[in-house]
Design a binder for these strands. Structure first.
Lengths: 113, 113
DNA sequence: GATGTATTCAACTGACTGGTTGAATACGAA
DNA sequence: TTCGTATTCAACCAGTCAGTTGAATACATC
């Protein structure tokens, strides 16, 4: 059951922990781009960016296609959804618990927006 | 302008990149806990967990109170919101762009669920 | 086939990180 | 004051990671 589901989530969090990779994701949200295009804004070598993209790919955050010698990179929004799902899960558990605590301390306000 | 706003976001992403720290966040969503309580489920030393909590605190993901010699840790859901806000921002930009591309290629389906 | 461009592979390096153990601090209880 | 518990500080170590440069691969064009 769920062989590497946890692994994928972990890789996604690790991938977004790097500011360069987050910048790449931000750029890709506006459309696919090649490695060179993605490297241009950053003061690091193209090779380094290539490896960043590989990390994002392993995390399922991006996919790649072929176009002659180019390898355009595309955002894979499902992986981003998995991340927000994880975060929201615990955020909502916390919030729900908080509300019921409020209700406990202040029983008159049981039905509040 | 926004002195360390970026820094806070970065620390939050880095903090959640570690599975132990994510487990701590998950546990705290069900209510505050002491360092010892948080360390119990993990096969590492209490000192190590103490440092994990410190990282979470620096990222603004948790806060701490005093109770005699205990230092209960509480979840700070606003930081989690900042994370989802970042992710959703680019996820939505991507999705919006995708829809308008669809409409361009297939102009008849302008109003689809 | 030779050249140029886009990308990746390989080997190396310095910095950071997560773990350890041992000592220190803070506080309540006896 | 002494003892026990909770937590943190400090020094150390091994592994990981992001960057580098140089060589290799893949493809289009000349």
């Amino acid at each position: 059951m769920e062989p590497d589901e946890d692994d994928r989530l972990d890789r996604a969090f690790v991938a977004l922990a790097d500011p360069v990779r987050r910048a790449i994701v931000a750029r890709l949200s506006r459309g696919p781009a090649t490695v060179n295009e993605l490297a241009a804004p950053h003061p690091i070598s193209v090779q380094a960016v290539s490896r960043h993209i590989h990390v994002l790919e392993e995390a399922g955050l991006v996919t790649r296609t072929r176009d002659a010698q180019r390898r355009p990179v595309h955002l894979a929004p499902e992986a981003l959804e998995r991340l927000t799902a994880w975060i929201d899960r615990y955020r909502l558990i916390h919030e729900r618990r908080f509300r019921s605590l409020d209700a406990l301390l202040d029983p008159d306000e049981k039905d509040r927006p």
